[in-house]
Design a protein around this nucleic acid. Structure first.
Lengths: 160, 160
DNA sequence: GATTTTTATTTCAAGCCTAAAATTTCAAGC
DNA sequence: GCTTGAAATTTTAGGCTTGAAATAAAAATC
């Protein structure tokens, strides 16, 4: 079932237009979340992301695990964790048996603060995706799995 | 047709999970595009975005029009256009009758460079969205319209 | 056990981005 | 024709991000 070159070309353009629309939508949602975090909570998305990651791992994450998980550079998380530590939301704990490594953990204060943020975050998303049904979501989700699958393949290809 | 509170809560969680997956997918695609622009063309996404905007307006765009169109700050485009101008890809043209304003335009060299970039960009997207049919795209596109509609409403609400 | 390599993290330099202040010019009202 | 306010742009200060260099400790090799 060979498609014609014309159809392939049209599909390529259609995909490009979709990508631009998708990017615009996602950037818009992200901008609103950043705005809400700043205006309503005096914080930022990178800080929320770090706290969110640490909330999933109650025993804490090593700095390098944190940067891998968030897909940002090591130097980046250093700065963010520094700030969160100064504010008493995160704690650096020495790893027994390895004096190079440190584990970052949420403090009780940090956990409480995160839970507050997370609840609001969920409700913002719920509003922003108003009109999306469970079926809509399932359909998109399966298409996104295609994208993510490709990405994880590529990653393993790039592995050193 | 009142849904139960339980269903509403489940939908909210489902939407949140979708959002996280969507963000991961889009960030992954964007990261690959940035990588390709850097490694294959020695340029960056912000530069590509500026050139792309200027390519759509052969008569050029005022600096403020450019920043509005791209949804970035004025100061931001100043720096990017500075660099592109130094490299001979963009030209600043005085606006007759208004000595405050300047129009940024692609030079012929800039246009050629952009067309080269744009062709590659389209093919990268085409590969990254491999497996997305015209029907998939149409379905998602209509859901995204919901999001974009909400965003444009909000914008006009925020207008000064 | 000394040397080399790898691993974990931080520091650094540079680019991107924003919001706000500063500059220059235009337009309106007097 | 001044003055005041608005508009277009650039400059500035500060935060985020990266990739690469630097530091320090662990692990592997000899």
């Amino acid at each position: 079932m060979a498609e014609t070159a014309e159809k392939q070309e049209a599909l390529s353009k259609t995909r490009l237009r979709l990508w631009l629309k998708l990017l615009k939508s996602v950037n818009g949602i992200e901008a609103e979340i950043r705005r809400n975090l700043r205006d309503q909570h005096g914080t930022t998305l990178p800080r929320f992301d770090v706290m969110s990651a640490l909330a999933r791992f109650p025993d804490g994450l090593k700095m390098s695990e944190l940067s891998t998980f968030l897909k940002v550079s090591n130097g980046n998380v250093t700065g963010i964790v520094d700030k969160l530590t100064e504010e008493g939301l995160v704690l650096r704990v020495a790893v027994p048996g390895d004096r190079r490594a440190q584990v970052a953990r949420l403090t009780p204060k940090g956990r409480t603060a995160f839970e507050e943020l997370a609840a609001h975050h969920e409700s913002w998303i719920d509003e922003l995706l108003e009109g999306w049904s469970a079926d809509d979501i399932a359909a998109l989700s399966s298409r996104l799995d295609l994208v993510l699958k490709r990405q994880s393949q590529e990653e393993s290809g790039n592995a050193k």
